[in-house]
Amino acid sequence: MKAKTPKVTQNLILTGVGGQGNVMASRTLAGMLVDAGYVVTIGETFGMSQRGGSVMSHLRISPDAVKSPQIPQGGADVVVALEPLEALRVLTVYGNPGTSLLTNARPVYPIGVITGERDYPSDEALREAFDALTQHYWLIDATSVGLELGNPVLSNIVMIGALAKTGLLPFDRKMFEKEIRKTLSADKRALNLRAFDAGAEMI
């Protein structure tokens, strides 16, 4: 699909649970967009916030200026979530009627759910909420694809492949290939490209 080129700032939030490869995904995305000529600002926190907690990267993709590393409430154009509960958490703060969502389907249970003190929302409740809070959403099982490819953490690349296919952001497979050439060895690149393609096929 041909990606649209933003004339105004596009706000993307990448979310998930510590350890899911959120930071790597946001860097890869941002790297591609910087090469494409955009001014990209990523807001992120790591450190203690990674230990099993919710993590978020705010990406501001601007034609011309550095932006606040925190997106204002209700300001997300696109949400990409590696975990569905985190998708919902982000939508309730940063969503608006025009927000698009791409989310992984596989839950990671918070401790309160494991201990039985709290409930994890049902699939139906999640879908209903996504319906109400987005213009459009895609729910894909990226973790299973990652597991098939030998490592569940590849789900982040599966999501990037899927995101490329949605056309919500101006990047494609060629740019992804160029980006990972900067950091990954040849065999890892091949695996990442397979994950990317598998993601694209899910859209």
Partner: peptide, 16 residues
């Protein structure tokens, strides 16, 4: 948003 908010359990930090 209000309705969805009620569904969301917190995700506490914990040891890995």
């Amino acid at each position: 948003v209000q309705k969805a908010g009620a569904l969301i359990p917190p995700r506490e930090q914990t040891f890995c």
